[in-house]
Design a protein around this nucleic acid. Structure first.
Length: 901
RNA sequence: GGGCGGAUAGCUCAGCUGGCAGAGCAUCGGCCUUACAAGCCGGAGGUCACAGGUUCGAGCCCUGUUCCGCCUACCA
């Protein structure tokens, strides 16, 4: 048995380090597929949303991990076989950027190293820094199975990626083509639609004159990007626009370029906007691209993939950057008198979600996934096979899937899964296969010629989309996959509902014929105190690691849990975390108290709970009753993802009930001479504390484990593997609840009188209670617990029974029909009591007025359910009784005052 | 433009299927009462955004309005 005392203050750093290591060394959370496949145990599995290897733990991760951990630890208690898969994602663009920056410091570029050397270099970086975020996950206390850890670029997952690519290609769901895509000049790669973020920017709207070639006038077009005019191929107007009806079909002369381009009509054009004439630049605008296709217009790119004007621009502009070219174009147009207007114009501009530079639509050869068929299945699976919680997100999910466009999956970078496609240098044959031809030592199957692999790699999200089954060993049919797929729930923020969740749904359904998860729980975003998104540039980031260092992991976890109400963002401030550290301290000290009051020999109390419950005192009956209710509350709240309710129920129970009332009431028995009573109360104290530790453990794993490990009579020190506390329905007692409420009312009323009349706390008062009108059993509650009333209300003498009356000069109150008297003569100037009673009477009046109004309202008695009517009438009677008694007591007091005067 | 969410105590937020408006923090008053001053006891503080409607009864359901967030979209 370990030393059954605890240090005075809780030291989170030491405790967390110790138990964290213990869990990992002992592989406490290692999942066992055989327990499911052969043992018949129910599986429960979660795959972690893999953070970027380049990432550092932020509050969003902290919340995400906390909620998943609560679920996993709770499900273990429920007897499930739990697998929580940790891992990271290779974050193609982000990681490549990091290493490129590193190279830059050495004065090198990636091209200086070449593809192979560069990738080696990234792996080196990954080896050195890639574990950072994983170690931070450890500090959160996450009960993941570290033996199951995966990385999107590791061998198994790479195999899965190739398998998926090849199969989709074979099914015609992946194709290659020349299309306009979102292009980031800085990252030098294509991006998917949803990797482009739109941000409002202040810009200008330029109006440019395009003279009609026949000299019959001009069209004025409006544009925010004048430099693109060099690539214009047409001007479009609305077919029903009378202003331009005669111009349709004519040619205009493109200024600065000098060539003639047609005026076309298309209903896409908004007559209201600008001049109603739209210049068409198919190579540099998504919409223009679409128009050009319907009208069979040529595509002329004038900007290259680095953002510089290319050889298709007039020589005067070639080689200029976009912005330099814009300046020159504006200057030249002005000189020619062709610039009709410049106006301020706010519009939204696409930015790269990784580097925030402006996205340039760019025509290039790319690979795409044809998503429509996949999206259809993903849509139909909700809510039948996969439930989105809270359900309000279903709409967002549907909306996106309904409007989805083909997914550009090729990226012009090096770090990632290289596309498994080879082109024959001799005959141009395209080969897509899982095996590397080089490994197979084969050439072109058609002509035997030399094969060259695609340079591009796949979008990181392509591999992330496979995460729920690739991490379980797919495409092999592993035991893990059999036991744990589909996963039980995916816990994530709504910000990657599209990027990731929808795509996992598509891939999971397509390749495993089953949805990847039963539930998707969408949690809040963590924001700062003002409700702003935390970001490094704003400087409003609260660093979870710093908070852990200062307040401990449990405080942080509890705070996040307490604020994780469904469907609402969390506004977090350091003060809240600090506040909940007080709660951790409270728990710690209540455990210290309990341990100080256990048998001296370090063993458990010598009485069973069953025996302790025989003729148990009020405090014991009541707290055991409440403990049973708590088990129900915590269980249902967890099963329904009501995380804030878990926190609230536990907080209230531990602090306001267990500590404030039970412990105080137990002291009498614990310190008393009656050995039987002492042992019984010790047993109850230990039972409640230890079961509470189990209930609290999923939220606060460290402090509960530390306390658990020193509790007397605990055979298994591994709290994480304890079953959920057994139910003892026979201990539920509404009578105990009622008795306790009465007891608390009496103590509370007495305390209020004392404090309100500013009576010295050290001054002992006497107490007289008239129980003539009390509920059955109330007298016994008082008689049996008079010693506790003395102690808690700081009372000296007590006289309680039907018909008792105190002196007129008493502080008075009415509790559930019983009259309370606190004699004040010689204690305090009791004039203040008259005023206090006025206030109390006022409160009663207010309630009475409202209640009488309700009861007398026409139709209430007839229409309301009988039990409600009865309850309301009973309430009215109680209030009327209290008011009458209190008013009479006040009169007595006044007469006493008059006599004195 | 479309969609979603929010408005409840000074602050941050709970309030499940309609039935006495709650908590934490802050605040005020009093306490070093032998687990805890990171604590204990007590008090004060609300026209539940606004206007209608349904109902015996609305913070909750319905309609409209205002003000805030957020997501999404191809008005150049």
């Amino acid at each position: 048995m370990s030393d059954a005392t605890l240090p005075k203050g809780y030291e989170p750093a030491d405790v967390e380090a110790r138990w964290g290591k213990h869990w990992e060394d002992n592989q406490t959370f290692r999942a066992d597929p055989q327990a499911v496949l052969e043992g018949g145990r129910e599986p429960y599995s979660i795959v972690i949303p893999p953070p970027n290897v380049t990432g550092a733990l932020h509050m969003g991760h902290a919340l995400n991990l906390t909620l998943q951990d609560i679920l996993c630890r709770f499900m273990r208690q429920q007897g499930k076989s739990v697998l929580w898969v940790p891992g990271t994602d290779h974050a193609g663009i982000a990681t490549q950027n990091v290493v490129e920056r590193q190279l830059k410091k050495e004065g090198k570029k990636r091209d200086d190293l070449g593809r192979e050397k560069f990738i080696e270099r990234v792996w080196e970086w990954k080896k050195e820094y890639g574990d950072r975020i994983l170690n931070q996950i450890r500090r959160m206390g996450a009960s993941v199975d570290w033996t199951a850890e995966r990385f999107t670029l590791d061998e198994g997952l790479s195999k899965a990626v190739r398998e998926v690519f090849v199969r989709l290609y074979g099914e015609g769901l992946i194709y290659k083509g020349n299309y306009i895509v979102n292009w980031c000049n800085r990252c030098h790669t294509a991006l998917a639609d949803d990797e482009v973020e739109h941000a409002p920017r202040k810009g200008k709207l330029y109006q440019i004159r395009y003279p009609l070639a026949d000299g019959s006038g001009e069209l004025v077009v409006a544009t925010t990007r004048p430099e693109t005019m060099l690539g214009d191929v047409a001007v479009a107007v609305h077919p029903e626009d009378p202003r331009y009806a005669q111009a349709v079909g004519k040619m205009v002369t493109l200024p600065l370029v000098g060539k003639e381009i047609p005026v076309i009509a298309d209903a896409y054009v908004d007559m209201e906007f600008g001049t109603g004439a739209l210049k068409i630049t198919p190579a540099h605008d998504m919409n223009d691209w679409a128009l050009a296709r319907t009208h069979n217009l040529p595509v002329i790119a004038v900007i290259d993939d680095k953002g510089l004007m290319n050889e298709n621009a007039p020589s005067a502009y070639q080689g200029l950057s976009k912005s330099a070219c814009r300046d020159k174009v504006v200057e030249d147009l002005t000189a020619l008198g062709l610039l009709a207007d410049i106006a301020e114009h706010d519009h939204s501009v696409g930015e790269c979600y990784r580097c925030k530079s402006v996205i340039e639509p760019h025509v290039s050869e790319q690979w795409f996934v044809k998503v429509a068929p996949l999206a259809k299945a993903a849509r139909e699976a909700v809510p039948g096979q996969t439930r989105i919680v809270p359900a309000q997100w279903e709409k967002t999910y549907f909306e996106w899937l309904d409007n989805i466009r083909d997914w550009c999956i090729s990226r012009q970078i090096w770090w990632g899964h290289r596309i498994p496609a080879w082109t024959c240098q001799a005959c141009g044959e395209l080969i897509v296969q899982t095996e590397d031809p080089a490994d197979l030592k084969t050439g072109c199957p058609k002509c035997g010629g030399e094969l060259a692999q695609e340079d591009d790699v796949l979008d990181t999200w392509f591999s992330s989309a496979l995460w729920p089954f690739s991490t379980l060993g797919w495409p092999e049919d592993t035991d893990k996959l059999k036991a744990f797929y589909p996963t039980s729930v995916l816990v994530t923020g709504f910000d990657i509902l599209f990027f990731w969740v929808a795509r996992m749904m598509m891939m999971g359904i397509h390749f495993e014929k089953q949805v990847p998860f039963r539930d998707v729980y969408i949690h809040a975003l963590v924001r700062d105190e003002q409700g702003k998104k935390m970001s490094k540039s704003t400087g409003n980031v609260i660093d979870p690691l710093e908070m852990i260092a200062k307040y401990g992991t449990d405080s942080l976890r509890f705070t996040l849990t307490a604020f994780a109400a469904m469907g609402r963002d969390i506004k977090l401030s350091e003060k809240r975390i600090e506040g909940y550290r007080h709660f951790v301290n409270k728990i710690w000290n209540s455990a210290r108290f309990a341990l100080m009051n256990m048998p001296e020999d370090g063993g458990a109390p010598g009485v069973s709970l069953e025996d302790a419950c025989v003729s148990a005192p009020l405090a014991n009956r009541w707290i055991l009753h409440r403990l049973e209710e708590l088990k129900d509350e915590v269980e249902s709240a967890t099963l329904e993802y009501r995380f804030n309710d878990i926190a609230q129920s536990l907080y209230r129970f531990i602090w306001n009930e267990f500590c404030d009332w039970f412990v105080e009431m137990a002291k009498g028995d614990l310190y008393g001479e009656d050995a039987a009573a002492r042992d019984a109360t010790r047993r109850v104290l230990l039972t409640v504390l230890s079961e509470t530790m189990v209930l609290l453990h999923p939220v606060m794993p460290f402090v509960t484990q530390e306390i658990w490990s020193v509790l007397p009579g605990v055979a298994d020190k591994e709290l994480a593997l304890q079953p959920y506390p057994e139910r003892r329905p026979q201990l539920k007692s509404s009578q105990a609840a009622r008795d306790m409420a009465f007891f608390q009312g009496v103590v509370g009323a007495t305390r209020t009188i004392r404090t309100e009349l500013t009576i010295d706390p050290a001054k002992k008062l006497s107490l007289i209670i008239d129980t003539a009108d009390a509920a059955p059993g109330a007298q016994a509650v008082l008689t049996d617990n008079v010693h506790l009333i003395r102690q808690l209300a700081r009372i000296d003498g007590a006289d309680m029974g039907p018909g008792r009356t105190g002196p007129r000069a008493s502080g008075t109150a009415v509790v559930e029909g019983s009259r309370i008297f606190v004699p004040l003569k010689g204690v305090v100037d009791f004039g203040a009591e008259v005023a206090r009673l006025d206030k109390e009477l006022g409160k009663l009046d207010k309630q009475l007025t409202a209640l009488r109004g309700k009861l007398s309202a026409p139709g209430f008695a007839n229409n309301a359910p009988a039990d409600i009517v009865a309850a309301e009438n009973e309430k009215l009677a109680g209030l009327e009784d209290a008011k009458a008694k209190l008013a009479a007591l006040q009169e007595r007091l006044k007469s006493a005052l008059d006599e004195e005067a």
